[in-house]
Amino acid sequence: MKNKIRIYRAIHALTQEELARLIGVTRKTVNTIERGKYNPSVDIAYRMAKIFGITIEELFCFEEEGEMKSPEEEWDS
């Protein structure tokens, strides 16, 4: 799942370790989610979004397999 965790961590001057501590997970978990290798639970996604003051939808972009998106909907990687 694509996400903007790295961008929002930079905006809020948080390291992966600091974000992990704030949401109650390990740094490795944050790293794995940030790289798109693991999809977080709704609870973890909510806690992250709340820390950044945004919605889950602003932080994560779920695409169904084979889903076509318009260029306006594409996220920069």
Rank of each mutant, 00 (worst) to 15 (best):
M1Y: 09
M1P: 05
K2L: 14
N3C: 02
N3M: 02
K4C: 09
K4N: 14
I5F: 05
R6L: 14
R6M: 15
R6Y: 08
I7K: 13
I7D: 13
I7F: 15
Y8I: 07
Y8P: 00
Y8Q: 02
R9V: 01
R9S: 11
A10V: 14
A10W: 13
I11P: 01
I11C: 10
I11W: 14
I11L: 12
H12C: 03
H12A: 09
H12D: 08
A13K: 15
L14V: 09
L14C: 06
L14S: 05
L14E: 04
T15R: 02
Q16E: 13
Q16P: 00
E17T: 08
E17Q: 12
E17K: 11
L19W: 00
L19A: 03
A20D: 07
R21W: 05
R21C: 00
L22P: 02
I23N: 01
G24I: 08
V25H: 04
T26W: 03
R27G: 08
K28Y: 11
K28T: 12
T29W: 13
T29Q: 11
V30N: 10
V30Y: 02
V30M: 10
N31E: 10
T32G: 05
T32L: 07
T32K: 11
I33R: 00
I33N: 00
E34T: 02
E34C: 04
E34W: 07
R35F: 04
R35Y: 08
G36S: 03
G36C: 02
K37I: 15
Y38D: 02
N39A: 15
P40S: 06
P40V: 01
P40I: 01
S41D: 04
S41N: 03
S41I: 03
V42F: 13
V42K: 11
V42Y: 14
V42E: 14
D43W: 01
I44R: 06
A45W: 00
A45H: 00
A45K: 00
R47N: 01
A49Q: 03
A49N: 03
A49F: 02
K50R: 11
K50C: 01
K50Q: 06
I51W: 02
F52M: 09
F52Y: 08
F52L: 09
F52K: 03
F52H: 08
F52T: 13
G53F: 01
G53K: 06
I54R: 03
I54L: 12
T55Q: 09
I56D: 01
I56A: 04
E57I: 10
E57F: 02
E58Q: 08
E58N: 06
L59Y: 00
L59G: 01
L59I: 00
L59W: 01
F60L: 10
C61A: 11
F62H: 10
E63H: 14
E63S: 15
E63V: 07
E64F: 09
E64H: 09
E65C: 11
E65F: 08
G66R: 14
G66V: 10
G66C: 12
E67T: 02
E67C: 07
E67S: 04
M68R: 15
M68T: 12
M68K: 15
M68F: 15
S70H: 09
S70I: 06
S70W: 08
P71L: 07
P71F: 04
E72L: 15
E72Y: 07
E74V: 11
W75S: 07
W75H: 10
D76T: 13
S77C: 15
S77H: 12
